[in-house]
Design a protein around this nucleic acid. Structure first.
Length: 369
DNA sequence: GCCTTCTTTTCCTTAGTCTC
DNA sequence: GAGACTAAGGAAAAGAAGGC
């Protein structure tokens, strides 16, 4: 498309004339509609009969309109805001759940109850299977939403992002002397006969948890342990452990070996995001969307929270309806559960507790009982 | 975790109708 | 009468969910 001759106020007698000036193909029907819609990313126009009158030309074209989830642009905006705000200096290292929580895609109950699913199920009077399914489907959906936003920002050359293996590492420390032995302490006492007695003990080692990016050697070691356990279970790929229903066993065993041999309590994925800060500012100035104000940021997060709830509930409704359609005596257990009359209300209850920003704190509720 | 399947959206052609 | 508009139907692409 050649926009060099398009100026505000220009009048073109008809569609064909406009095509000529833009060096665009003449199209018809819905293809033409799509073409006009595409042009509206670059300039605004008014119609007068067949005439096209140019009323505005955008310095930066509006974003492409494709069939992305409607709230992905909000996630993009909040991620960009996050990397440039508060002296982050255009760099962010953050776990998936931390990022989702900051953006209000989940609330604090979500991560808290993720590893307490049986307790959550009993507390809410919902079956464990339903809670498991909720986490399985929403985890995947939210991860894809985040990564769609990251990929879109990467495509616009606004950020570069990578996955980064992160460790919960148990640091241990014991004070040593010059000969590298654990430092000893002595306690001297004088008894009633003025005799000296001495007792010895060693400095007690201390331990504490730290979270940090894994080193190259640690990544290699983790891969090696994963491979060994895969071999033990006769699986070629991690996905095979899911297929064989061995995934919980697999991860438990890997974790145990890593803890026993390397003080690694567990490992998970984080995002490392590096921003093209200079360009972000120039783009935002252009679009009058410079770094978000405090209340604006909150508004975006609250809208996102609402949209995510809506999406998860909508997906549950679809699953429920589809299950009812396909239900018969031989249907698998999952379909029977989904077609259950309580399935939807339970799903809504779960989004209300685990996603809704206004939910009561489960941490408090669990501690009281 | 990852591959497969389903769903939604976009884009296209064709053909008939409407408007300038 | 030429150009513009509209609807139906289908292919392709991309997103989202399913399933082990």
């Amino acid at each position: 498309m050649n926009l060099s001759n398009i100026e505000v106020g220009n009048i073109y007698k008809n569609y064909k004339a406009l095509c000529e000036i833009l060096e665009e193909k003449n199209k018809t029907g819905n293809a033409k509609k799509a073409q006009l819609k595409e042009w509206e990313r670059f300039f605004k126009y008014e119609k007068e009969g067949n005439k096209f009158i140019i009323t505005h030309v955008y310095a930066i074209p509006l974003p492409e309109n494709n069939n992305k989830t409607k709230y992905i642009p909000t996630i993009e905006k909040l991620i960009l805001d996050k990397v440039v705000q508060f002296g982050n200096k255009g760099k962010v290292f953050i776990s998936k759940s931390q990022l989702m929580q900051e953006l209000k895609m989940i609330n604090e109950n979500y991560t808290f109850a993720k590893y307490k699913q049986l307790r959550l199920a009993k507390h809410m009077n919902i079956s464990l299977e339903e809670v498991e399914e909720f986490y399985m489907t929403s985890d995947d959906l939210l991860k894809r939403n985040i990564e769609a936003a990251l990929n879109s920002l990467r495509n616009q050359s606004l950020i570069f992002w990578t996955n980064a293996m992160t460790l919960c590492f148990i640091e241990t420390h014991a004070e040593t002397n010059n000969t590298n032995n654990i430092k000893a302490t002595k306690e001297e006492r004088t008894n009633e006969y003025n005799e000296n007695t001495v007792s010895f003990s060693a400095i007690k080692p201390v331990s504490y948890q730290t979270y940090r990016k894994a080193t190259e050697e640690e990544i290699e070691y983790i891969l090696q342990v994963e491979k060994e356990v895969l071999n033990k279970y006769n699986c070629d790929k991690i996905s095979e452990t899911f297929k064989k229903g061995l995934n919980n066993k697999f991860y438990k065993e890997v974790k145990e070996i890593l803890f026993d041999t390397a003080n690694i309590y567990y490992y998970f994925n984080s995002y490392e995001i590096i921003a093209n800060e200079k360009y972000i500012y120039s783009k935002w100035e252009e679009l009058e969307e410079l770094q978000l104000e405090l209340d604006e940021r909150e508004t975006y997060k609250n809208t996102l929270n609402y949209d995510v709830i809506d999406r998860i509930n909508h997906n549950a409704e679809r699953r429920h309806l589809k299950a009812i359609e396909t239900l018969n005596d031989d249907a698998p257990e999952r379909i029977k559960n989904r077609s259950n009359e309580n399935y939807l209300s339970n799903s809504y209850k779960l989004t209300d507790t685990l996603i809704n920003k206004n939910a009561l704190s489960l941490k408090r509720e669990f501690n009281i009982k």
